[in-house]
């Protein structure tokens, strides 16, 4: 075992939550959300992080194609639509990440032999796109009123050449970064639901990024809570 991973083990022993390293600050760009903005889908939401903006729509539970039917749970289909052109191989990987994260938090066994469709339309990409997809997806699922075991949010971290961690980077910061990581964090235990990385990094850098993301997730969950509270205070 290398020296760095020895340090890392010690880092993890603290229990569920990890400490945030003092050198890195958790700053997210301005984020905003609007729910039920489309009339046709059963649930919809737009999520903006700085200049990055995604529109999400959920249809379902509806009838499922026989070939995709699963006898004991609902089939979830995620479609990512880029701003220009047709979805390519890169979008497939993002679809897979979003789908499996949603599958983990949704209680799909309550709707056997039915289909759920989640459509994610990119409105503008200025970095941290995958995390914006996941946040928009969570808000849209919430708007559709689908039963979930927990909520989730996602945070992107970029490590630049000096080893400094930036949360929620812009496209320019992403381009300059040495490594880029996106984590989805669940709302009950603040554990990692999804992880997708680019570039090479050390074990301790990974742990720092997870810790920073967990810290940042608090802000996003608080935002979820506030925005839902604001919305229902108007209705009731």
């Amino acid at each position: 075992m290398t020296q760095s991973s020895c340090d890392a083990l010690h880092f993890f022993r603290g229990g569920g939550m990890m400490e945030v390293c003092g050198s890195s600050t958790v700053s997210l760009r301005e984020f905003g959300c609007e729910q039920s903005l489309l009339s046709r889908p059963d649930g919809s939401a737009s999520f903006t992080q700085g200049d990055t903006s995604v529109l999400a729509g959920v249809y379902g539970p509806a009838e499922v194609k026989v070939s995709k039917e699963i006898y004991d749970r609902a089939t979830l289909e995620v479609l990512v639509q880029p701003k220009v052109g047709l979805p390519s191989v890169r979008e497939r990987l993002q679809e897979q990440c979003v789908r499996e994260t949603c599958e983990a938090s949704l209680l799909l066994s309550l709707h056997p032999r039915s289909s759920l469709t989640l459509i994610l339309q990119v409105l503008h990409d200025d970095g941290s796109l995958l995390s914006c997809f996941l946040n928009a997806a969570c808000m849209a699922l919430m708007d559709a009123g689908l039963p979930m075991s927990c909520l989730f949010c996602a945070v992107t971290c970029a490590i630049d050449t000096d080893g400094q961690i930036t949360t929620d980077p812009t496209a320019a910061q992403e381009k300059e970064s040495r490594a880029l990581m996106t984590f989805a964090i669940d709302s009950t235990e603040r554990k990692v639901l999804m992880s997708s990385t680019k570039g090479s990094f050390s074990v301790s850098e990974l742990q720092q990024c997870i810790a920073v993301s967990q810290k940042a997730s608090e802000k996003i969950f608080q935002f979820y809570r506030d925005s839902v509270r604001r919305r229902y205070s108007k209705i009731l």
């Binding site: 075992m1 993890f12 499996e100 599958e103 992880s195 090479s200």
Partner: peptide, 27 residues
């Protein structure tokens, strides 16, 4: 011993200790 990718497309959450265990086995 550097990590090139930690890819977890979703599913149930994983704790820090489990992740460390995985990294050690991967090395």
């Amino acid at each position: 011993g550097r990590l090139c990718s930690v890819y977890k497309p979703g599913g149930t959450s994983v704790s820090g200790e489990k992740l460390q265990q995985c990294i050690n086995q991967a090395t």
